[in-house]
């Protein structure tokens, strides 16, 4: 049993994850970018006296450096989601009203940043000795020692965030309408990983040293399953992580990679400055001037328009 859950499953999951990612990324990479189509969210660079504010230079990037900046803003602080508003129609006063709506942005950020920090914290299971940077992250995250053992800030944050993200899908009718089984599944899976993780820390302690031995042995490609000291709850936690890994490349979670491939965000608005070549361009049927003049020759002549052939 523990060999299945502790060794075979992780290897399979990691293999599927890596191959799946490669498959997707290669598919995307091979798909052409025929046109340059950045979404321009601010004034473009035109006449030199039209000054642009720093954020405008990122929202409508005119060079690759600015594109990197734009991308970083999207990835690190969800720039576009920050714009979010909510619309309401008031039929009696005949008005359409937009109000700022930052909850998705807030909980989305909490969710992703906690996910990242938790991932970083888990790295300690794979390193001996543990790099100092991991200690730093852990200490900061553990600042708030609410209970003993430490309940990490990110643990609270991710549970809160997943709960919010799930509830909004159930409660808001627009979201209910667009939500698919896969959307609930992803949240439940990540929520499940988080909940079992927290349980392992606080209530059902497991032998972390043994887990670390297992992890490092798997990493060395000479897996050794420690004897009974690892609890079934850990294997449950691990199984969910493996499911997440294997599911990842085939799910919407691929937005993590896809965002870098998004042509409306990763291209500079140099449209009229630099030529962009369409790799699959092909000749098309045209209506050249001489055919046009042939058809309308007499009429053009009467109207006094200059002609190629009198």
């Amino acid at each position: 049993m523990s060999t299945l859950f502790g060794v075979i499953l992780p290897y399979a999951a990691i293999a599927i994850f890596i191959l799946g990612m490669l498959y997707k990324v290669i598919k995307w990479g091979k798909s052409a970018v025929p046109f340059r189509i950045p979404t321009t969210c601010a004034q473009e660079e035109t006449l030199p006296w039209i000054k642009r504010k720093p954020h405008e230079k990122l929202d409508n990037p005119s060079n690759n450096l600015a594109v990197v900046g734009r991308m970083l803003l999207e990835v690190l602080i969800f720039r576009s989601l920050w714009r979010n508003t909510r619309a309401e129609v008031k039929a009696d006063s005949q008005k359409l009203i937009y109000s700022g709506s930052k909850f998705l942005w807030l909980f989305g950020l909490l969710f992703h940043w906690s996910l990242l920090v938790i991932l970083i914290r888990h790295c300690r299971l794979f390193f001996e000795p543990v790099p100092w940077i991991l200690d730093v992250v852990e200490n900061i995250d553990g600042m708030l020692e609410i209970m003993i053992p430490t309940l990490y800030l990110t643990d609270i944050a991710i549970l809160l965030a997943v709960t919010y993200l799930f509830i909004r899908r159930v409660v808001f009718s627009q979201l209910r309408y667009i939500s698919l089984p896969a959307d609930y599944f992803a949240l439940l899976l990540i929520g499940g990983v988080a909940v079992t993780g927290v349980l392992l820390r606080i209530f059902f302690h497991t032998d972390v040293e043994a887990v670390k031995e297992l992890a490092m042995s798997v990493l060395r490609f000479s897996p050794e399953v420690p004897d009974q000291s690892i609890s079934w709850l850990f294997y449950f936690h691990l199984a969910m992580v493996c499911t997440l890994l294997a599911y990842f490349p085939f799910s919407k979670m691929m937005h993590a990679g896809g965002i870098f491939f998004s042509p409306t965000r990763n291209m500079a608005n140099t449209n009229r400055v630099k030529r962009h070549v369409n790799p699959w361009d092909y000749p098309v049927k045209l209506h050249p001037y001489h055919e046009y003049e042939e058809e309308f020759h007499d009429k053009m002549k009467q109207a006094g328009l200059p002609l190629e052939k009198e």
Partner: peptide, 24 residues
């Protein structure tokens, strides 16, 4: 078109149905 337009392939793959675009 999936091979000709990266926009198409990527956009069909990565939407998380967050709904931010819905009432826009």
């Amino acid at each position: 078109r999936l091979d000709r337009y990266r926009s198409l392939r990527v956009y069909l793959d990565i939407c998380v149905r967050c709904g931010a675009c819905a009432d826009k």
